[in-house]
Simulated assay, not measured.
Amino acid sequence: MSAVEVMRLPLTVDLSGFVALLQRLEVPYRVSEESGEQVLWVPGAQLAEQVRGLYERFPEGDPHFQLQHEAPPQAPRPGFIAQLNASRITSLVLLATLVVAVLTNLGDNFSTIRWFSFQDFQIQGDYIYFTPLAESLAAGQWWRLVSPMLIHFGILHLAMNAMWFWELGRRIEARQGGLMLLALTLGFSLVSDVAQYFTSGASLFGGLSGVLYGLLGHCWVFQRLAPCPAYRLPPGVMAMMLIWLLVCLSGLITALGFGAIANGAHVGGLVAGCATGLVGGALARLRR
């Protein structure tokens, strides 16, 4: 790649501080003297544009600039209460999930579950009879479109979903705000519930996993379009979640006797999350 001229400055301008900054940032550069001027070169036009912008922000003439930026003080890690305060929507969603888990006795109290399920139902003997969704919506029970995300069947189901929502929800709340996280959570719940309903028909399902796949897809696509530290997931997380999705789709988990998996909700949430990540990442990239 050929060298590109970044800027020409008089020989009287002291570039030593800026050159030291480029060295710390590991930016390849070269300074030459031509016709009584000093010329700064870097490889590539895109890097040249970035270095010009960096020089415009450089506090020229500040002798303490090097010392202030050489070793920034390590910020203390916030405590648990501070993390809760900084992630209020994430915490509220998890609190609501825990309350519903207690009220439903982790899926054993069907008289309470029926108020949060996608369709109302009655149990008579060994049979469960579902009320048509249209009747429930006509009666004003619109919360059923999103409330299944609060239902969990067993402590392991609850613990795994809560852990991942805490991990992904805080990232989105820190990067895009609590209102955006709430909108995404409700939107992914709606899409995943409807997808599961059309996949399996009248059935009893619940959990945050559809929402989690939505949040995961959102972070993944957003990060690829507009990289940011908040959405940089640990290596292998996306691959692991996709492998788990394929294993569930294969029917192996159900065949082993671990219960039915809401595959429609998982796929619906993931597709919706990739779509919102595409839009959000594209807009963030344009703003940059």
Rank of each mutant, 00 (worst) to 15 (best):
R171T: 05
G207W: 02
H157R: 03
G187C: 13
A183S: 11
D193W: 07
F198L: 10
A174H: 15
G201N: 11
N161A: 11
G178F: 14
I151K: 06
G169A: 13
A138T: 09
L184G: 08
Q176H: 14
Y197K: 04
M160V: 10
L208N: 03
G207V: 02
A174V: 13
S203T: 12
E173R: 08
A202N: 07
L150Q: 00
A138Q: 14
S209Q: 03
T199C: 15
L168M: 15
L208P: 00
L179M: 08
L150W: 05
L137G: 01
P148H: 12
L158S: 11
L156A: 15
N161I: 01
Q141R: 15
F188P: 01
E173F: 08
D193M: 12
Q176T: 05
S147I: 01
L186K: 00
S189E: 11
M160P: 00
L184R: 00
G201R: 08
W164R: 01
Y197G: 00
L181F: 07
S192T: 11
G154V: 00
G177Q: 05
A138F: 09
W143V: 06
L145W: 08
S200V: 15
S189G: 11
R144K: 04
S203E: 10
H152R: 03
G178K: 14
G154P: 03
L145T: 03
A195E: 05
R175Y: 06
S209D: 11
W142M: 06
I155K: 09
L182T: 02
H152T: 15
G206I: 01
F153P: 06
G169I: 14
S189K: 11
L179H: 09
G140H: 07
L168P: 02
S136F: 04
